[in-house]
């Protein structure tokens, strides 16, 4: 599988906040990151998209110097990232995949603690803590202990702890896992707000819809490698699929399916579970051609829909497997 790299207008020419070169990380025999390359520009919401086990969290942990790696270079804000580079760490905010808060502290105490690791001045810290509470909508839960919070509120607390000190660069590692839709929307809107306020965001997820609606640039990862990078439009332009047709058909004769497959430009047509799926470039005429063939073959069909390609289609075409896998 070849690496495809696109370059869009977002942040073009801006200085890179993160630069990763040829990073290799092994866990015994398993190669978690295989000559991983990454460049994130100032002001971006950069999405790392990939299935579970693709190496997203490992990449972030290596970038944060939490994990030692065998080979490669990581620089943040133009400086080599080492575990003792505290000046760089001061400019970073991290929201871990697991909710990392003290169970013994209340919401406000937790946020104050993490903010206090970056901001020693008490008055300034109090203002920042209050701001983070308001930002994440936790005003009504200030005195609550984490065990009294729902999953969505816990995630919001996790985010508040990571962003309270107003970092320039924020790593958000799957912040919406196991979160209800209301909290998810709240979180996503919050991330956009952070970005509007000037923060560069690195966002990992295996939810393609989230990444698609949130990120300015996206890297698709698989097996520790970056398989494609670009804006969502660029990524979709990298594949042949321009449009995907789905039609509900009770019975589709083999000769009719063969005729559809034979149409010039239709590069994939499958029939399973009473459903016909066809992929072709987005030129506006293939859908009519397919419906004509069905009519001529006296094939009764129900609901027909046509949609543009998703990131899952991008992933499917590049790797040969579904992103959901």
């Amino acid at each position: 599988m070849a690496e495809i790299t696109g370059r869009g207008p977002n942040g073009a020419g801006a200085s890179p906040v993160i630069k990763v070169r040829s990073l290799v990380k092994r866990y015994g025999e398993l190669v978690a990151l295989d000559h991983f390359e990454l460049e994130v520009r100032r002001g971006e919401i950069f999405g790392l998209l990939g299935p579970n086990g693709s190496g997203k969290t490992t990449a972030i942990n290596c970038m944060l110097s939490l994990l030692k790696y065998g080979k490669g270079e990581v620089s943040l804000f133009g400086e080599p990232m080492k575990s003792d580079n505290y000046a760089v760490k001061k400019r970073i905010g991290v929201v871990m995949q697991n909710v990392a808060v003290f169970n013994e502290l209340t919401v406000v105490e937790n946020i104050d603690y993490f903010c206090g690791l970056y901001v020693p001045e008490k008055a300034k810290r109090k203002a920042l803590t209050d701001e983070a509470i308001a930002f994440t909508g936790l005003d009504d839960y200030r005195k609550f202990l984490p065990k009294k919070l729902s999953g969505g509120l816990l995630r919001r607390l996790n985010i508040a702890c990571g962003i309270a000190h107003k970092p320039e660069l924020i790593f958000l590692d799957e912040p919406t896992v196991a979160v209800d839709p209301q909290s998810r929307n709240h979180i996503l809107e919050g991330i956009r707000e952070l970005n509007r306020n000037g923060a560069t965001v690195v966002y990992t997820s295996h939810y393609m819809e989230e990444v698609e609606q949130l990120c300015t640039r996206i890297m698709i990862m698989d097996k520790g490698k970056a398989v494609a990078t670009g804006t969502k439009e660029e990524l979709k332009a990298m594949i042949r699929t321009g449009e995907k047709l789905t039609a509900e058909i009770y019975d589709l004769p083999e000769n009719v399916l063969g005729e559809i497959r034979g149409v010039d430009g239709i590069f994939q047509a499958d029939y399973s579970d009473n459903r016909l799926t066809a992929r072709y470039p987005a030129d506006g005429r293939h859908m009519i051609t397919i419906l004509d063939i069905l009519r001529r073959g006296n094939v009764a069909f129900g609901r027909v829909s046509s949609e543009p390609p998703t990131l899952n289609d991008v992933f499917l075409e590049i790797t040969g497997k579904e992103l959901k896998d």
Partner: peptide, 22 residues
Amino acid sequence: SNITSAFRRPDMRMRNLCSPLK
């Protein structure tokens, strides 16, 4: 043990290691 179990929790250690505190 209350102190250490709170701070040595792996996720908490990782989170603290990300901070500028030595």
